[in-house]
């Protein structure tokens, strides 16, 4: 993979920030380095960072999926609805994963085969899938799932590590291999740069896009189920607004909103950075909303600073000659 030097420097910057925040956190709180805190740090945002992985593929491909949080809500609602209608939970879970895949494929169909902009299609999905979730559960809260289901979200599995975290780690490795080593990953980049050139090279661009959106829907559904397992109950407004955090993680990781550039190392660092930042601020008793503001500012700065640096750099050069 050839990456322009500025991106190479981007990961370095993320790493430096991460180390700085870690250092501050260690100085601030004696609990920070405890195993319990580190597991907890992942656990609190685990669903978002799982979806961020497939979102990386989508954004590198030059598209966007705003509907992920609604699909998370939808999948949880489908599972809860079917379970309370008397269907065995394993079947309900399978059906809800299928619903997520179908929702993703539906987005993908309109984007890939009709050629509509993904921003508009998935905006419709964001509103529409949430609507379907609400039709299913209305304003009720469903709970009373079997213990094994709740354990999926909360209980330590391998040592102190929960099932969700294992799922995330396995998926991270999987997506890294796909994006940076496989033919599909190459096609994702090529299409993100120039989808027409890909088409003229015999790449089956429609199929790749459909596949990516279906994957995004399926993974969002999985994340929705893990979220339901962690909370132990399901409501119609579950995971509302998560798409913003998820997209922020990906963009902060140096993935270009226009597609075609960025890598999973950056996204991994960005995940660690955001988790540690939130955790540190939490330990310092800063509220969730202020945390969100800080991350919002970080997102804007992450693009603004390199831009400004480049402008200054050009001006500087101009003065020298």
């Amino acid at each position: 993979m050839t990456l322009p030097p500025i991106l190479r420097r981007w990961e370095t910057l993320l790493l430096v920030l991460l180390v700085a925040i870690g250092a501050v956190n260690i100085a601030w709180s004696p609990f920070y380095l405890g195993v319990g805190n580190i597991v907890n740090l992942f656990q609190l945002s685990i669903e978002k960072i799982i979806v961020a992985l497939t979102m990386t593929l989508i954004i590198v491909n030059g598209e966007i999926d705003l509907s992920v949080a609604s699909v998370m809500g939808l999948s949880a609602c489908v599972a809860a609805y079917l379970f309370h209608a008397g269907i065995a939970l394993p079947w309900a879970l399978l059906a809800s994963l299928a619903a997520g895949a179908a929702a993703g494929a539906f987005n993908g169909f309109w984007v890939a085969y009709v050629g509509l902009p993904s921003l508009a299609v998935t905006l419709a999905g964001l509103i529409g899938y949430r609507g379907i979730a609400r039709i299913l559960v209305e304003d009720r809260a469903y709970g009373g799932f079997p213990d094994w289901f709740n354990a999926l979200g909360q209980q330590p599995w391998i040592g102190p590590v929960t099932v969700s975290i294992v799922v995330f780690l396995v998926m991270f490795a999987g997506v890294a291999v796909v994006l940076h080593g496989s033919a599909l990953g190459r096609l994702v980049y090529v299409m993100g740069n120039n989808v027409q050139a890909a088409r003229y090279s015999g790449v089956r661009v429609k199929r790749v896009k459909l596949l990516l959106f279906t994957a995004s829907g399926t993974v969002a559904a999985l994340a929705g189920l893990l979220y339901a397992a962690r909370l132990g109950s399901v409501r119609g407004d579950m995971a509302v607004g998560f798409e913003l955090d998820i997209i922020t993680i990906v963009l902060l990781g140096g993935v270009s909103i226009f597609g075609g550039s960025g890598n999973l190392v950056g996204v991994g660092l960005s995940i660690l950075l955001i988790l540690n930042l939130r955790n540190g601020m939490g330990l310092a008793n800063i509220t969730g909303n202020t945390q969100t503001s800080v991350i919002g500012a970080l997102l804007v700065l992450s693009v603004l600073v390199p831009n400004m640096a480049q402008t200054l750099h050009t001006k500087w050069k101009g003065r020298e000659t």
Partner: peptide, 24 residues
């Protein structure tokens, strides 16, 4: 520029793109 090449990709990645399956 529009239909032929993926400009930010490397020369080698551009050359192998249509027959990528041969390089797996």
């Amino acid at each position: 520029r529009q239909l032929g090449l993926s400009l930010p990709m490397s020369i080698s990645a551009n050359i192998t793109l249509p027959v990528l399956s041969r390089y797996l």
